[in-house]
Design a protein around this nucleic acid. Structure first.
Lengths: 347, 347
DNA sequence: CAGGTGGATTGGAACGATCAAGGAGTCGTT
DNA sequence: AACGACTCCTTGATCGTTCCAATCCACCTG
């Protein structure tokens, strides 16, 4: 009665019904309606039914801001969108974000994107945290020297990382990661099973722990098979040209019959070199990439590639977030998932 | 004084300072602090300086929930994440989302992702709208028969569409789109300038208005140049194989020297056919794709491709949103942007 | 039949901000 | 000296929800 009702048919923008509106119409108190929504067990079945019907009728949905204010939680998870950079295949993130949005919605959370600034890597976090705009963060860039995880820990902000705390082995925050070594081992063993013995590695510079991890998988599989690796490894920048160059050198100097690469980008370089030399991928020389990117799938000669279980990563992250936010003792601090191999014509 | 202060050094999670805390410390009233944040002009320079200093000192940031409740706005923009679908190159969206996040942050908004459900395309919108969780939406899938735009209009929800209302020419909501015809015209004229006269088209099925739009650009440019087009056009599914097949048929029957494609995916198919036939892309046969996707950039023989000005689209959308939300008369209802051509080795 | 018990429901008070008035104080004008 | 106008700041009320404690009521018990 105190609320403004639409005068005419409904042309004036109507403010949505409130708890009080529903309560009045249903002949109960506000709190009872609130309980019908949040603690149905507290109501007598008859009352519950009646209230629910009115809620349905009026199309009531609790006002998010009011609820957030009272409960001191926003049901939002912050995800920083790294500054745009052309070229690199971070389209992988797309798959991850998709599942993250889906699974966190199942847990009652939405995903809030906020811009990242290279000059001020923690600015966005700070703002959202202090204004209590989000309940927690998902941090994706855990590369060397990234201050975000440390900063968040220091500020007691709840967050889960996609990626191990490489340079902070004593960090206590929960994380989920993909076992890169297991992936390249999988790739190498796949090639070994195909009869290859001279399998080369093209990876990144030594200061990338992720790159070294992936390299270790190849190295381990080769050693386990009792095969030599000297002269079969190359470390370059993550560029198509670099991959092509490395492949050319390796082919000339060590005559490998197969390549395992730290990324699809490098694998594309290898394919380019093969093309120039009139070598057929898959039949003459086998190639395996990493990430199962768009490119690997669309390339005319399908590129075999290590596929990260991003869906499982997202599920694991959301589970960890739930534990974190309900102040449960975390089931596990770190979760390491094993990738699979998407086998295509290139191997 | 009524608030709980940390007993020890700061181990107990401290709730962030409130307006009242700042006010007390600065020796002013709540409202004055509020004004210092929102209407600095109202304060005397001295007071403003003092309040600002305390704000800085205490690390105060307005509580989002409280502000949202009072002002009836969330400063959030909803963006539906379409159900995941492997393979198709919607990685383009990545570029768009990036800029959208950046530009909307400049305008004081954050982007909220919510999951899309194929069975209930408007469910997510409905929830967020009724719970006043977002101020507006950005709608990206405006393909034929998509009920979202209509539904949102009917429910008087503020939104801006990326894409023209193809099947509802009398729709009144603001939109921003890319002129596909202008893009393919650009591509065709580029090829004409290179001396090509037999330029083929590979596009989508007739029921795609976007596909027909892009086709029209090629057709127009050819007509304007007084060149024949019969036997030079093909309509297929948006798959690599389809593109390869169409290219093979066209090469056999009409001997074109260049291809303009409705997508990079189709262009990849063409490149595959060229590879099989030992024809060199760029020198023997020219190929142009559409979308300037990851694939076009990473492919060893760089693929010339029509590049959508997604950054400008995002800027246009945010501008339209601002007008919409400040109840200004929209400057323009629809904004049509012209794409550019990313020229690489394939042409 | 008074008193205890526990389930169902209620009303007041917060959460932390902004809105809408209202009060000091200063100034110039009459 | 009284007045209004203006600047600057303060005080209650309010947004819509959930928390907290109290109340009501039916039922059981000794």
């Amino acid at each position: 009665m105190s609320r403004t009702e639409p005068r005419a048919a409904g042309f004036i923008p109507v403010s949505p019904p409130t708890l009080a509106d529903v309560a009045e119409r249903a002949g109960v108190s506000r709190q009872t309606v609130s309980n019908a929504v949040n603690n149905p067990d507290l109501l007598r079945p008859g009352t519950l039914e009646r209230v629910r019907q009115v809620i349905e009728e009026m199309g009531y949905s609790p006002n998010r801001a009011a609820r957030n204010l009272r409960t001191r939680s926003s049901q939002l998870i912050g995800l920083r969108v790294a500054p745009a950079q052309e070229g690199t295949a971070n389209a992988m993130m797309d798959r991850f974000v998709h599942t993250l949005v889906d699974t966190s919605a199942d847990a009652g959370y939405h995903v809030l994107l906020f811009p990242g600034d290279n000059d001020d890597p923690v600015g966005g976090y700070d703002n959202l945290l202090r204004s209590t705009a989000v309940d927690a963060f998902v941090v994706t860039d855990t590369y060397l020297g990234n201050p975000q995880a440390v900063w968040l820990s220091e500020h007691r902000a709840p967050f889960v990382a996609f990626g191990r705390p490489w340079d902070h082995p004593d960090a206590t925050h929960p994380w989920v990661d993909v076992d890169g070594a297991a992936g390249t081992r999988l790739a190498t063993e796949h090639l070994l099973a195909k009869g290859h013995t001279r399998i080369a590695w093209i990876g990144w510079r030594k200061d990338s722990p992720i790159g070294e991890d992936r390299r270790a998988g190849w190295l381990g599989a080769m050693h386990d098979a009792g095969l030599p690796t000297t002269g079969l490894a190359s470390r370059v920048e993550d560029l198509v040209q670099s991959g092509a160059g490395a492949a050319a050198v390796l082919l000339d100097e060590s005559a490998p019959t197969a390549f395992v690469c730290a990324s699809d980008t490098l694998a594309m370089g290898v394919l380019h070199t093969l093309w120039i030399r009139q070598l057929a991928p898959g039949t003459d020389i086998a190639v395996v990439g990493f990430d199962d990117s768009q490119v690997a799938q669309v390339f005319p000669v399908g590129l075999t590639s290590v596929r990260q279980p991003l869906e499982d990563v997202a599920v694991g992250i959301v589970r960890a977030l739930e534990d974190l936010l309900s102040h449960l003792p975390a089931a596990t601090q770190g979760l390491l998932l094993t990738p699979t191999l998407a086998i295509r014509e290139s191997s």
